[in-house]
Amino acid sequence: MKTYATFIVTHEQMALCLQRATEKILGEQKNLFPYTNLEDSLPVLAEKIKKNIEEVKPDQIVFFVDLAGGSCWNLANMIHKQHHNSTIIAGVNMPMLISYFTNLNEFPFNELIEKVIKDGSRGIVHVEG
């Protein structure tokens, strides 16, 4: 089984809330690290994330960020550049996190990511008014 390190990086407390909400449904998840960009500068956040990576020594690193083009996205890209076993998904939502943790180690990595993105989109449902 592969070891994953998963980071949720967002504005405000959204990352922590997404972790709590996901774990409320699926139970505690291993090596899941939520970070907010609220007060720390990006180099400080990068150091914390690198420390997690050193501790976990993951085969794969996955970043979920809230907004492409935002500072969390920029940060994830900076770390991605140094860690080729990492991937970034922007636009994080509950359906994609649930899909991700439910299917971890069920699919080869590329297929997992493809599925997670698909399930994240499928989770956006509209009831016409």
Binding site: N37, L38, E39, D40, S41, L42, P43, V44
Partner: peptide, 16 residues
């Protein structure tokens, strides 16, 4: 926005 890093002191939530 000048965020927290070593030797920076807090002035506002987004100014260190």
């Amino acid at each position: 926005g000048l965020h927290y890093s070593d030797h920076r002191k807090k002035y506002l939530s987004y100014i260190y």
